[in-house]
């Protein structure tokens, strides 16, 4: 059984049909890319999976559980995590506290009030920061980090609760080519314990890290398959060559 199953999902905003009968399945341990021209519905689909939007029709099943109308909190507790398209770190908190905040989300109220776990979580926070090359900036405010570092910090936050599925919306947006390459390297090690659904415009980046691609166009699935299959797809080539 797939880790994530999206079945016949539709979403409208007024008269605009943003998603129209979308079906995708994401297997555990795979990196799944969502690509397509602007306005094809990639980010809307990602938000429907994360719980930022509720679909008008269809169903979303995660880890065997129907989460179609679950709140973002309930989805996060079930093992889903999202990195927003627009960087959403907490600018007035240190990089350290941003990660700590994500790590302690399963703690009880009493544990939080008595600050019982900060010392215990210190190692995990620093490991996460070290993995994303932010250990030497642990005490700096998140708002003082470069754009690329803020993107990494948000990915570190999203990974901190050890999700089963990470949703990344344009994680390399605004990054330099070197930062993009490093981002790809940083994501590879999570494959052992976390699947990934990623929306990204940089097709080279997507091809480098993904096992499976779904191509959307005008709110529908245009094609679906391995990277090699999508590269050979004439339908996909037609859409890209006619729009770009």
């Amino acid at each position: 059984m797939a880790l994530l199953e999206v079945r016949n999902v539709g979403k409208s905003f007024g008269t605009l049909r943003a998603l129209d009968g979308i079906d995708i399945a994401v297997q555990a341990g795979t990196f799944h890319g969502l690509i397509g021209p602007n306005g094809s519905g990639k980010s809307t689909l990602l938000k429907a999976i994360a719980g930022a939007h509720f679909p008008n029709s269809g169903s979303i099943t995660f880890d065997g559980r129907d989460i179609t109308t679950a709140t973002p909190y309930e989805r996060a507790r079930a093992g889903l995590s999202l990195k927003f398209q627009i960087t959403a770190v907490l600018p007035e908190l240190s990089a350290y506290d941003n990660v700590l905040l994500a790590l302690q989300s399963d703690q009880s109220l009493w544990s939080l009030l008595s600050s019982r776990t900060r010392r215990r979580l210190n190692g995990e926070v620093m490991t996460a920061l070290e993995r994303f090359r932010l250990a030497d900036r642990a005490d700096d405010l998140a708002g003082e980090l470069s754009h690329g570092q803020q993107q990494w910090l948000e990915i570190a936050m999203a990974l901190a609760p050890r999700p089963k599925l990470l949703l990344l919306d344009e994680p390399t947006g605004g990054m330099s080519p070197e930062e993009r390459r490093v981002t790809g390297e940083l994501l590879q090690p999570i494959r052992s314990h976390c699947a990934l659904v990623i929306v990204e415009h940089d097709l080279d980046f997507i091809k480098d890290i993904c096992d499976h691609l779904t191509v959307l166009d005008q709110g529908k699935v245009l094609d679906d398959g391995t990277v090699a299959e999508i590269e050979r797809s004439t339908r996909v080539q037609e859409v890209y060559t006619s729009r770009v």
Partner: peptide
Amino acid sequence: QLGLVLAGMRQNEERLAFV
């Protein structure tokens, strides 16, 4: 650590809901 949650909430409550 609860105060940290509240400070985070003040800055971006949507981010906190998603973690």
